[in-house]
């Protein structure tokens, strides 16, 4: 008890009306608690405790995502641009005529008519020496194709007629024949 009294007396002298410890004498927390409260810790406790705590914290949050997430402000315009580019690409693919066209519809027939008119104009510009070759090309590329078209249309007509009721068959054949002859 004398120890405490002496200690208190010393502290009182140093810090006026306070006792036990003086605020101006900052000490290590371990020393302070040991000296005034008798509480101690194992050697190197705080270093070991730090490792224990770090080992016990959940590490799931630390995993870095392998998926790169773009900010919406950047991602949406990029996605829209890509969609537009893909759309243009597909549209151009559909719009481009086939290299080896197979005539199956009436649009091609109309284009053949236009080509026939062009033929007359173009033939005026062809030299006499090349005229035979030009005619051969026209026959092969235009007239034979048109003939093939007519044949295909006839086949289509027959196939379609199979789905028409008997009562309408006659009129259907007549209409189809007229169309075919006109074309």
């Amino acid at each position: 008890m004398a120890k405490m009294n002496k200690k208190n007396k010393d502290h009182k002298e140093q810090s006026g009306n306070r006792f036990l410890k003086d605020d101006s004498q900052k000490r290590e927390l371990v020393q302070e608690h040991k000296e005034y409260l008798g509480m101690d810790v194992p050697d190197d406790y705080f270093s070991k405790s730090k490792d224990t705590i770090l080992n016990s914290i959940p590490i799931d949050n630390e995993r870095t995502s392998k998926v790169i997430r773009l900010k919406p402000l950047i991602a949406y315009p990029i996605a829209a641009s890509l969609l537009i580019l893909v759309g243009i690409f597909v549209w151009l693919q559909i719009d481009t005529p086939a290299v080896n066209p197979k005539i199956t519809n009436s649009e091609k027939i109309q284009s053949l008519d236009v080509d026939s008119e062009d033929f007359l104009v173009t033939s005026l510009l062809v030299e006499d020496d090349n005229l035979d070759a030009f005619l051969d090309d026209f026959i092969v590329n235009e007239i034979l194709v048109e003939a093939e078209l007519s044949e295909q249309q006839l086949e289509n007509m027959i196939i379609n007629s199979l789905f028409i009721e008997d009562s309408l068959l006659d009129s259907y054949i007549n209409e189809s024949l007229i169309e075919n002859i006109v074309l």
């Binding site: 008890m1 120890k3 405490m4 200690k7 036990l20 040991k34 005034y36 409260l37 008798g38 509480m39 101690d40 810790v41 194992p42």
Partner: peptide, 13 residues
């Protein structure tokens, strides 16, 4: 085991 206070410290507690 990690309390090694003497009489004075026990008195304070």
């Amino acid at each position: 085991v990690y309390f090694d206070g003497d009489e004075i410290q026990l008195k304070l507690h």
